[in-house]
């Protein structure tokens, strides 16, 4: 689809701004509408994102890597038995299956300081791409603090609140969930982190959580995400709560660079 010779398409002279954002800017127009190329680009991305929702998670690689790094893991399932059920019944994605409960019961519930839960959420690709590299930074950080860690729990068809039940089992003070976010057109593999202090099922609500979102190649880097998480954890330890009243006050080290870039509209 080549539109270079198409006189009816009005192109935009500000295409150079694309260097600053993955957003679909300077698309040009046919009349006032999207030109054919931009329209088909969108349809292509939509098809990819739609399909991404339905790719099942495979935790085996992650299990092996964790074991190689010397960390225990447990693979668990929720009561959402299949993808269709998972999409329509978020309540089932917040409750562990009977077999998962049995499996959890077999591990000793001792008071761990922290538990890390990894769930496929709405993008298995996000977990496959970003969970391990992030864990390789996070786990040593938690060890530095001499935290006692529960086994890393890998949950299929899990929603954010699934961490609450697991945290309760281990009497864990800190619950960190890595989860696949809803796939966007431009980021089918975005990972999110939810942190809850004293997470307890039936008690914790979304207002008790802090979220670090958009971890992917065009979004937040692992280092940036880690910095935010470490800040939230330390503050929560001091304040003894997490959630809307715990504010992320980390400063961005690249903020100076960002300010300079921002000034193209303001100098």
């Amino acid at each position: 689809m080549n539109e270079h010779n198409d006189q009816t398409v009005i192109t935009n002279s500000w295409a150079s701004l694309k260097q600053f954002t993955p957003a679909r800017i300077a698309l040009g127009r046919a009349g006032i509408s999207l030109p054919t190329r931009a329209s088909l680009d969108f349809q292509l991305a939509h098809a990819l994102a739609r399909d991404a929702v339905n790719i099942p998670i495979d935790f085996s690689g992650l299990e092996k890597s964790l074991s190689f790094m010397g960390f225990q893991s447990l693979t668990l399932k929720t009561r959402a038995e299949n993808q269709q059920m998972y999409l329509q019944r978020p309540d089932l994605g917040r409750v562990l299956s009977d077999s998962a409960l049995d499996c959890l019961q077999q591990t000793t519930p001792h008071s761990a300081d922290a538990v890390i839960v990894i769930a496929d959420g709405l993008s298995s690709k996000a977990i496959e791409h970003h969970a391990l590299p992030f864990l390789s930074l996070l786990l040593p950080k938690l060890q530095e603090k001499s935290y006692h860690l529960a086994p890393v729990c890998l949950v299929k068809h899990g929603r954010v609140a699934i961490g609450d039940a697991i945290a309760r089992h281990y009497l864990a003070r800190l619950c960190i969930i890595l989860i696949g976010e809803r796939p966007g057109l431009s980021s089918p593999d975005s990972m999110g982190i939810y942190f809850t202090y004293q997470a307890r099922s039936e008690i914790s609500t979304d207002a008790d959580r802090n979220c670090i979102s958009n971890i992917h190649s065009n979004g937040l880097s692992y280092e940036q995400a880690l910095k935010k998480l470490v800040f939230l954890v330390s503050e929560a330890e001091k304040l003894q709560f997490s959630g809307v009243n715990l504010k992320d006050e980390t400063t961005d080290t690249s903020a100076d660079d960002q300010r300079r870039l921002a000034n193209f509209l303001l100098d």
């Binding site: 954002t21 993955p22 957003a23 800017i25 958009n214 979004g219 960002q258 921002a262 193209f264 303001l266």
Partner: peptide, 11 residues
């Protein structure tokens, strides 16, 4: 995705 001011300004 990261609140980059230049990225915001572009859109």
């Amino acid at each position: 995705p990261t609140d980059n001011p230049a990225g915001v300004a572009a859109s």
